[in-house]
Design a protein around this nucleic acid. Structure first.
Lengths: 243, 243
DNA sequence: GAGTGGTCTAGACCACGAG
DNA sequence: TCGTGGTCTAGACCACTCA
């Protein structure tokens, strides 16, 4: 048995990909779609949620549901790289950064590999590109580093290749962990996303040659418009090769 | 204003982390929790979905909701690496592989960088570790490669470091794209997951020295029990260093 | 104010798991 | 068979956007 949600999503999806609904066009209202498909609004909404998670539909409270521009995706580049092809820089790109001091607590202690109450500097970065915020980053730097590097770091933070901050001094090791989860209350508010739609949760830790953590970044991207890319070249170190 | 869902999720979450609900323990039924919190079952279920996405709750149709063992997470290691610390090998690990031949169609054509109708070999790998399947992988290899390498590949595919297949001959470049989306109908059935919970969608393309694609892997992991790790050492290539 | 999507209700009915 | 979670309904009411 296949669910109503899926068959409705399949139907609308095909109407989008075949061009019956043009990109950027507004879909009929949820109530009219619901009556058209002879389902309740809840069921219809769960079908739209599927399409939203695929980036095919953009929902907008009070305005309507729109056929998504698949080009509006955020790309996170892993491995500390810069994108080789320069991205289409959106002139409306705007990043707000709030810096503050705090002491290491809870999950920050193992993350930063520091004793409790160690001085840290926190940067909260919200990236806008058009009206809806696109990404949220919380970046932590040890206090002793930020004292010497704070001023140099500031321009580095502003240097968002893809809107997400990169380190100024390249560390010797980058560890990135990715997972998906539903957004927290705060993230729903800040990113203005649906609380039922997953976010990409990226934790990036930069380690220097002595094993110290020089930066930890907690990044949150709305999953329906985000991709993360990693390009690696496995070291050509004397790898046994069968002849 | 904060939603009922969030406050209920917060309440149950705190009862879990403070140990009022032990790991592995069954939670009260949804109907009883709903009446306890004075909400409808739908609202209570959406609160549980939050906790499920955090890995705190395992839902099981017909049995109940259980406090999750956070240790049961799947880890995908990016960059073609093997995990340094050997993972706790589960003796119940079981992988089913189905090989088949097909011709390049649709999205496989740009993915594999081949002309339409090129012969490909497809491996569909389903990994089990205990009753619920843990991951789904669809791996494509060009036909000309599989002819010379098919027999050697088979043991390589069985060599799952983390349950996910790796290439036998190391390619010169690995491209991995990660995103999160809701599962398809098939994925819901195969992985036995909730259709409302996101999956991690990983597309991995391996490229050889001549730019040819030697393997493409489409991996699907249930997000609530999966992490992807990437560890990179930014090349110490004559990077300008301030004195 | 009119129309939109977002949250929530109080059920009905179905599918699954275990005895 | 019984209790569980999963799907779906037909609304009510709230929040947002825009004229």
């Amino acid at each position: 048995m296949t669910s109503r949600r899926q068959t409705i999503a399949d139907e609308i999806r095909s109407q989008i990909v075949t061009g019956q609904f043009q990109a950027g066009e507004r879909l009929p209202s949820e109530t009219s779609l619901a009556s058209q498909f002879k389902v309740s609004t809840s069921t219809l909404r769960s079908a739209l949620a599927l399409l939203q998670s695929e980036g095919l539909v953009d929902k907008s409270h009070g305005k309507g549901n729109f056929v998504g521009h698949s080009s509006h995706r955020i790309t996170y580049i892993g491995g500390g790289r810069k994108p080789q092809a320069d991205p289409p820089v959106d002139p409306t790109l705007r990043v707000t950064v709030h810096a503050s001091r705090l002491q290491a607590q809870g999950h920050l202690i193992p993350l930063m590999r520091v004793p409790a109450n160690t001085e840290l500097t926190q940067f909260v970065c919200i990236r806008n590109e058009g009206p809806p915020p696109h990404s949220l980053a919380r970046i932590y730097v040890p206090g002793h580093l930020s004292q010497e590097g704070l001023h140099r770091e500031q321009p580095s933070l502003a240097n968002f290749e893809t809107g997400l901050p990169l380190l100024c001094p390249p560390p010797t090791e980058l560890r990135e962990r990715l997972t998906a989860r539903l957004p927290t209350r705060d993230e729903v508010e800040i990113l203005r996303i649906s609380p039922t739609l997953a976010v990409l949760d990226i934790t990036r830790v930069a380690i220097d040659g002595t094993g110290r953590v020089v930066e930890a970044a907690l990044l949150v991207l709305p999953s329906h418009r985000s991709d993360a890319y990693f390009i690696t070249r496995p070291a050509p170190t004397a790898e046994r090769r069968e002849g």
